[in-house]
Design a protein around this nucleic acid. Sequence first.
DNA 1: CAGTTGTTTTGAGTGATTCAAGACAACCAG
DNA 2: CTGGTTGTCTTGAATCACTCAAAACAACTG
Lengths: 160, 160
Amino acid sequence: MTSTDVAANAAALRGDDELAHTLRDAGLKVTAPRLAALRALAEHPHADADTVFRMVQAELPTTSLQAVYGVLGAFADAGLVRRIEPAGSSARYERRVGDNHHHLVCRDCGRVEDVDCVVGESACLTPGDTHGFQVSEAEVTFWGTCPACAEAAAAIAEPT
Amino acid sequence: MTSTDVAANAAALRGDDELAHTLRDAGLKVTAPRLAALRALAEHPHADADTVFRMVQAELPTTSLQAVYGVLGAFADAGLVRRIEPAGSSARYERRVGDNHHHLVCRDCGRVEDVDCVVGESACLTPGDTHGFQVSEAEVTFWGTCPACAEAAAAIAEPT
DNA sequence: CAGTTGTTTTGAGTGATTCAAGACAACCAG
DNA sequence: CTGGTTGTCTTGAATCACTCAAAACAACTG
């Protein structure tokens, strides 16, 4: 192990310390796959299970896909991550939780970006007729085309 | 066939006439499974593919599930129905299309109800930061508990 | 009424996710 | 620092919603 490796490792451990606290505070045991999953979600804020799996596997090659599903499920149950399921893509997980933010989804490539609520929350949160439902949350998804896909579409429509 | 059957049949045919127009106007051929699917959607305004399948099958026993998927896909492509995919349930189809209305979904049983947009459409439709996306649509889903599930939960929490 | 085009049937396949059982590891008490 | 308990991970298999493809069939056009 070189000295840079040592430094990188120390930094990773320092980061892991914080992540470990996050896990313990949520009442979850601290394990390597969980720390790796949290790190993966920090790097890819709207990753799907397979993306998390590949990133975890990169450092812990024995990790199974089912373990990742288990980890993500436990995180979601503990309120540590939020699970979103945009129509047409597989489920995505994000650590930004507890604030009422919404999503912008690309119809072509499925890319997801966060957007903050534009109008006041209370207006967003209250439908006119609740049909007797006890409404607990309003989820807003903006559908559109991301810059990359818009460019790609333009290139096809009008080739040079 | 009794006289009431004749009357019912005539009414059904009159109804089918309207449905046939709907299909033709959308550029689709008129077939028995399609008429049956439209009728199923009129009766169950947020039915999933399997529900439509069972209803179509009740009057056309030879109809296959794949035919229903084909029919619903053709309807969606033609803009005749809107396909919604609430997280955690299978895709649902509704004939109410073209107006910007939203949905109320029960977290427990998946029941879906329509709600009209509360705040002005334009406010709903514009996120603060679009991240360069060309935004075309805003989809709002209200999550909550339907009256039946709320009652069931109360009964479990506080048994007599 | 025959031809063309689009639809339906039949049969198989896929991808995301879940279930179950046993091996294993983290955390607590001693 | 060690053993027991509890929760987590591995392995292997199964499910569900949905899609694909080819051939049989039926709706509309002329």
